[in-house]
Design a protein around this nucleic acid. Structure first.
Lengths: 335, 335
DNA sequence: TTGAAAGCGCTAACAT
DNA sequence: ATGTTAGCGCTTTCAA
């Protein structure tokens, strides 16, 4: 492995000058630069990030912490962040926390000892104190898909409440007159907000009943199936369902299929997240979160923080959009 | 940030001794150790990996390179590898290559300059030379989901051919008498091998025709849909389909649904990969790859290589298993 | 059993 | 415009 000293020797200049051309910083003669660059490529020189990092500079690495990369929301996020990071010359360490506080704290220690430059974290177990504490350990943090009220934490969240209302209103517009909601885990703010949106849109309808809301303990397919079955038992005349996320919507779809209820003819269905769930039939209408943009913006923000720029430490609420596919369409039956 | 020197000062011993207790290496008095450990936790000391790495030791980081983490096969792999790595005290850098050789080479430079300890790579664009070259740059490499013939490269691959045969034979056993195959990209070895398995199992059947094989340019849903539609046009009497992976199988399912062909009543379907595609109805029968185990074993192997152990540099072929769900079941119709 | 000191490769302040 | 040099925090001989 060639070092900066080798390059210096070969080019006949000092390490300082080589360092300057490396960092494009400070004055250096064009001719000098040229011969140094030549030496670099002749030696196949690659600077050591460890050394640079030790000398007090960036490690060129950020971390992305998610509950579980198996949940299809997170690969999408990871991809966006990795792309953006790459564009800035950073690489990203992936951390699966399982929403386990202990694991998260262990990762934090690792991040500190690795001198990771920053962290983008999606967590529903971490409190503001822990995050603030990591910031104190001089690691800038950005939260995603979760926010922390008035605490000085930069975060990017979808407008879950508006999205919930949007989904429900869409069902109303499609002619539904008894709309149920499959709510995600109550421990997660996003679930509660989506539910509030639902209530905002149909809580004053004459047919509305609290029992039109069923809660699932997780955001997965099976929970959706269970909740849907339960709802139909309670209210066989449901004609619309807003599911708190796309996976649960798929679960609902399965329950409906088993019970021979036609979607969208008899019951219309809307999910939430906007995952490319093109695998199912009928394709799901959904409230799309701007996942990619959240990732990109989070990364942009992080870079600005790393550059010492002062940024507002608050939540950024992102607009969601209704994507209408087959599952909520009005079907004109003939005959 | 407390350094090793702070710990030394506080405990009254030298940095060398502190280093020894840190690495549990060399003689150190029990009492000494105790007071040093005390000082460490009093100072909330976390060793700097950058420094350690610069001093010639491990960076505690490996890289995982995949074409695209959005493809649901790879989160599964990533999760397995991250878990295993974590268990060994390593963290993992995620790299999305898009199967783009240029990107891959850029990543390689990054890996070298970061002194990453090792690489686990799933790539269909990289040739043996490139991988061997990285090894020469003293980064141990393990390939996954791809192998390189006689080249001295450690790799873990599923037995794709056996899997293809297994799927096809299963369909035969379920009573299918005209089985088609949706083949993945011909540029990918795995596709070709699965197809060979298919031919092995039914190439000698009286009804077999080369036109029962349709190729998709990618491994995605839409390709599956297209291929399925094409196959039905060619052979309306198909009663079984083996799709080269689960996503294409979902695509096939969609095409079949649109054309009102009942699965599994009229046409039975088997996929490949064993992804937990519990979102679709009917649930997919599939040939399950031991993804998690491939990840775990790859990591175990990598660790052994990092420990200087000499390992056989060859392909490890992993057994696949048939998972029967609804899509290939025999249905007893009544009446 | 413990300590002193020489690096690892780089950056940056200070000289020239 | 370029060079000298002192660290950054750790590991590892070599001495004691």
């Amino acid at each position: 492995m060639a070092t900066i000293r080798d390059v210096a020797k070969m080019s006949g200049f000092s390490v300082a000058t080589v360092s300057r051309v490396l960092n494009k910083k400070g004055y250096v003669n064009a001719a000098t630069e040229k011969s140094i660059v030549a030496a670099m490529s002749a030696l196949n020189y690659t600077p050591s990030i460890a050394a640079r990092s030790l000398a007090g500079k960036s490690s060129g690495t950020i971390a992305l912490m998610v509950p579980d990369i198996l949940n299809p929301f997170f690969p999408e996020l990871a991809r966006a962040i990795e792309d953006a990071a790459n564009g800035y010359g950073y690489s990203v360490i992936l951390c699966n926390s399982d929403n386990d506080l202990q694991k998260e704290m262990n990762y934090f220690d690792m991040l500190v000892s690795k001198k990771v430059d920053g962290l983008i974290v999606a967590s529903y177990s971490l409190g503001p104190d822990q995050i603030l504490n990591l910031k104190k350990r001089s690691i800038p943090v950005i939260a995603i898909d979760n926010h922390f009220g008035a605490h000085p934490i930069v975060s990017f969240v979808s407008d879950n409440r508006a999205g919930g209302a949007m989904a429900t209103r869409h069902l109303l517009e499609q002619g539904c007159r008894k709309i149920a909601h499959i709510c995600g885990p109550m421990s997660i703010v996003a679930s509660r907000e989506r539910c509030l949106g639902y209530e905002e849109a149909c809580g004053t309808q004459p047919w509305f009943l609290p029992s039109l809301i069923a809660t699932s303990d997780d955001f997965h397919v099976e929970g959706g199936t269970r909740a849907m079955a339960e709802l139909l038992k309670r209210h066989p005349d449901i004609d619309g369902v807003f599911a708190g996320n796309d996976l649960m919507a798929c679960g609902a779809l399965k329950a409906l299929y088993r019970l021979r209820r036609k979607v969208p003819e008899e019951i219309k269905l809307v999910g939430f997240d906007g995952l490319a769930m093109s695998t199912v039939v009928p394709e799901l209408s959904t409230i799309a979160q701007p996942i990619r943009e959240m990732g990109t913006q989070a990364m942009d923000y992080l870079i600005r923080m790393l550059n010492g720029e002062r940024v507002e430490e608050r939540a950024h609420v992102m607009d969601v959009t209704l994507v209408v596919k087959q599952s909520s369409q009005i079907v004109h039956t003939r005959g």
